[in-house]
Amino acid sequence: MGIKYGGFGIVSQLVILLLSIAVAVYGDLPPKIFDVTKYGAVANGKTDASQAFLRAWRDACRYYGRSRVWIPKGTYFVGSVTFEGPCNGPIAFLIKGTLKAPTNPQHFLTDTWIGFRYVDSLTVKGGGYLDGQGASAWKFNNCHTNPQCRTLPATLRFDFLTNSKLSHIRSINSKNTHINIFACNFMEISNMRITAPSNSPNTDGIRIGSSNQISISDSVIQTGDDCIAMVSGSQNINITGVACGPGHGISVGSLGRNHEHEYVMNINIRNCTFFASDNGVRIKTWAPSLTSLASNITFQDIQMINVRNPIIIDQQYCPYSTCLEAESAVQIENVLFKNIWGTSSTKVALNMQCSGALPCKNVNLININLAYRGRRGHALALCSHVLGSTSGQQNPPGCL
């Protein structure tokens, strides 16, 4: 038996000491750089760099310590790639150049252009561009009329990440969603610029599902669909300093189509501006729908500039001609609209159409000032099946 000291063996204490020293040493070392051009990537915009990127990631992920996959300035053609962990230390993916997606329809059969999976402490940044070359694919997107439509590739897909960051990247012309976040925890997104034409189908800026503790800040999103969409399982989401428009606004939902128990809770949208978007702040649920819940949602300190539907709750959402007449089974409760001002491009500036089977509960309107600048009179508010209260200024006059 070994000599004991303070309840621990000497050998055990030495192991702990050596591990502590190793952590301290590795923590002070500069990150190791893995340059994709050293792995065969050619910045001519034509040669497929996919395998070079994957080889650089493989070595960086295996490295014990901080590592960086480095993509220098230049234009790189990249096919569908997914970078998987777990990795042996914190890893950064630094994009300085421009990445271009395929335009051949044979490459549209996957739901991912660039993906990251099962990684802890990932950082993606660098000031570079992700060009999805979406115009080559948008004609294949008929999801508004076809429930069985093809799923086109998302530009960036993050699955099962923890403690990660995305910042200072410009995503342009995605084929589908620009950034898709699924089953991620503790993720920060900031200083992004996301753009696609207003008529580009299903080009959500950021789509979040089954994720917890996600923050989005200080970004500009101009797309053909939702600037930000929070679908089933989105919880503890904080959005601040986002400029949205054109696009379909910042949406909670649509909810209730496929998931019954993945509730949406604790959503905070503050200090945002909407420019000529179809919608401003929106909650939407399918009808008919599965049973679900959307609760504790705050929209506060928001400016609307010529927005078509500044404030909207839609519990009759169904974009297909084959929809059945039914009430939504999604309960919406504890919703706050506070300090929302600006102009509406339509006469109905506030429209809350809740479920007759499950009326919206505890909806509060505080200091709403939305003006209609058209020739048909003043702005109107329409409400159905809404239980709540109003206080402060109410323009249009509240309908609660």
Results as ranks from 00 to 15, higher is better:
W70G: 04
W70R: 03
I71E: 05
I71P: 01
I71V: 11
I71A: 07
I71G: 00
I71N: 01
I71W: 03
I71Q: 00
P72L: 01
P72Y: 03
P72G: 03
K73F: 07
K73T: 02
K73A: 01
K73N: 00
K73I: 00
G74M: 03
T75E: 05
T75W: 04
T75P: 04
T75S: 07
Y76D: 05
Y76G: 03
Y76N: 08
Y76S: 02
Y76L: 05
F77L: 02
F77T: 02
F77C: 01
F77A: 04
F77I: 04
F77E: 00
F77S: 01
V78T: 04
V78C: 04
V78M: 05
V78S: 04
G79F: 10
G79S: 10
G79D: 04
G79E: 12
G79K: 15
G79Y: 07
G79A: 09
S80K: 10
S80T: 09
S80H: 13
V81Q: 09
V81H: 02
V81Y: 10
V81F: 14
T82R: 15
T82G: 08
T82M: 15
T82P: 01
T82D: 14
F83M: 13
F83C: 09
E84W: 09
E84T: 15
G85I: 14
G85H: 10
G85S: 13
G85E: 11
G85R: 10
P86K: 01
P86M: 05
C87Q: 09
C87F: 11
C87V: 14
C87T: 10
N88H: 15
N88I: 10
N88R: 15
G89K: 13
G89P: 10
G89A: 05
P90K: 04
P90R: 08
P90Q: 02
P90T: 09
I91K: 10
I91W: 15
A92W: 11
A92S: 14
A92C: 09
A92G: 06
A92F: 13
F93A: 12
F93Y: 15
F93R: 11
F93N: 06
F93G: 08
F93P: 07
L94D: 06
L94W: 13
I95K: 01
I95A: 01
I95Y: 06
I95E: 03
I95L: 15
I95M: 09
I95V: 15
K96N: 07
G97H: 08
T98W: 11
T98Q: 15
T98D: 04
L99K: 03
L99M: 12
L99C: 08
K100M: 11
K100C: 00
K100V: 15
K100I: 14
K100L: 11
A101G: 12
P102D: 12
P102Q: 13
P102F: 14
P102C: 08
T103W: 14
T103C: 12
N104I: 10
N104Q: 12
N104H: 11
N104S: 14
P105V: 09
P105W: 02
P105E: 08
P105Q: 05
P105H: 12
Q106S: 15
Q106V: 13
Q106W: 05
Q106F: 12
H107T: 11
H107C: 02
H107I: 07
H107S: 14
F108A: 07
F108G: 01
